[in-house]
Amino acid sequence: MKTNFYKNQSLVLIVDDEPFIRTQLRLALERDGYQIAEARDGLEALILFQQLHPQIVLMDAIMPGMDGFECCIKLQSLDQGKYTPVLMITGLEDQESVDQAFDAGAIDYVTKPIHWPVLRQRVKRLIQQSQLQKQLEAANQELQRLVTIDGLTQVASRRRFEEYFSQEWQRMARDQLPLSLILCDVDYFKSYNDTYGHRAGDRCLQKVAQAIKDSVKRPADLVARYGGEEFAVILPKTEMQGAAILAEKICSVVRKLAIPHSNSQVSGYVTISAGVAADIPQPGSDFQDIISAADRALYQAKIEGRDRFQLSNKQSTYNFSIPRWGA
């Protein structure tokens, strides 16, 4: 095992059982400013790879013990391995060996005796391609995050809500398990904006969203911004009773924020109303029904005086709310 490191340079892992070949490769690549790590066989290569995370691997195909083909396959199974190009170096030029190299996960190959200008160009090109691929994947991940996260409140977006709800509805239908939905609406929010201004309104929504998010503990539960001042909570594997407990908690924690709202007809602070619906989805059914049920329950909560939650049984709304806090 041999390493030679300089800062801010790409690291090349050379894997070959012949010291002379490793030395030739190292000297050729050091001229182009690469860092070099050397391994004498496939097993040592796997250890070094996980320790050093090289930008490219130059792999001899024929080695005793674990050959280059087997080592390449094992590298691809590692998390970092799927992003790291492997350039196979082989004395075999038959079609079967070439196919075997690519089947093992190699990106390209060069044959012995090595044509050094070709090798250097391929190393440079493969590193550049790998770096561009990583940058593209990072950009795509960030774009996906921006699409699925509401920019103001940093909870899930309406688009993510619909995608996730559809996914969980189908999963619960397949497993015949309950799914609950809570729809929340900030009480008298238009009046709040008119009184305190839109910037204050944005800050209010951010605080409410965070309070709702903090109330939801399970990883599978999703909090989303459903509309302007509306939020939704998807609760897989949850019956009405469990959803009701959470809805009461959400109403309570928002109230405890004590955000002043002088024009609220409920109290002097910002409050929310919530509608709760639950169902065991049936295969092929439409999840819009449970959304409508939760929306009707939310409307009933507003009629009943706001700052409360109301339960629905899908088609009609239970006349149920817990006495509230001197509203």
Rank of each mutant, 00 (worst) to 15 (best):
D279A: 14
I47W: 06
A61T: 10
N8G: 14
N263T: 14
I245D: 11
Q95M: 10
E163A: 08
Y269D: 11
F231P: 03
A28N: 12
F5W: 12
L179K: 02
Q55A: 15
M1P: 09
V86H: 00
A220G: 06
A277E: 03
I127R: 11
D67I: 05
F49T: 01
V254G: 06
S77A: 13
Y318M: 13
V98F: 07
A297F: 03
K314E: 13
Q55Y: 08
I280N: 04
E168M: 07
S166Y: 09
F20R: 13
I73C: 13
A297G: 03
R218K: 06
I36G: 00
T111A: 10
S97Q: 04
G197M: 01
Q100Y: 08
L235R: 01
V276H: 01
D202V: 07
R218H: 05
K82L: 12
G201N: 06
T84S: 08
S191Q: 15
Q210K: 15
G91Y: 04
G151L: 12
L257I: 04
D175W: 11
R306G: 04
E38L: 13
Q170S: 14
R158F: 09
P113A: 00
S316A: 12
M1N: 11
D150G: 00
E137T: 07
L27I: 12
Y226C: 04
L143W: 08
A39H: 02
Q154S: 08
I290L: 08
P85T: 08
F320L: 13
V254K: 01
L136D: 03
N8F: 14
R31A: 07
A106H: 03
P281I: 02
R158K: 11
L92M: 15
D17H: 12
R199Q: 14
C72R: 03
Q141P: 07
S157L: 05
Q55G: 12
L58V: 01
V57H: 05
Q282A: 14
N263K: 12
W116L: 15
A274V: 09
D194Q: 02
V57K: 11
Q129Y: 11
A173C: 09
S273A: 10
N8T: 12
S166K: 13
D99E: 13
G228V: 02
P281V: 05
T84K: 11
S130P: 04
Y188A: 10
W116C: 03
S166V: 04
I182D: 01
M88Y: 02
Q154L: 09
G201Q: 07
Q265A: 10
R306E: 08
L78I: 12
D221K: 04
D32Q: 14
E304Q: 15
I259L: 11
K314P: 06
T111Y: 01
T238C: 08
N313A: 14
W169Q: 09
K124N: 07
K217P: 02
L126T: 02
E168K: 08
S191F: 07
G228K: 01
I149A: 06
P117E: 09
P178K: 02
E30M: 10
V12P: 04
Y83I: 07
D108H: 10
K190H: 05
Y196A: 05
T271R: 00
A277S: 14
D295A: 05
R40D: 05
D41N: 15
V223I: 11
T195F: 01
V147R: 14
F287M: 10
G105S: 01
L78C: 06
Y318R: 14
F69S: 03
L235I: 02
T153W: 08
A37C: 08
F320R: 11
R40N: 12
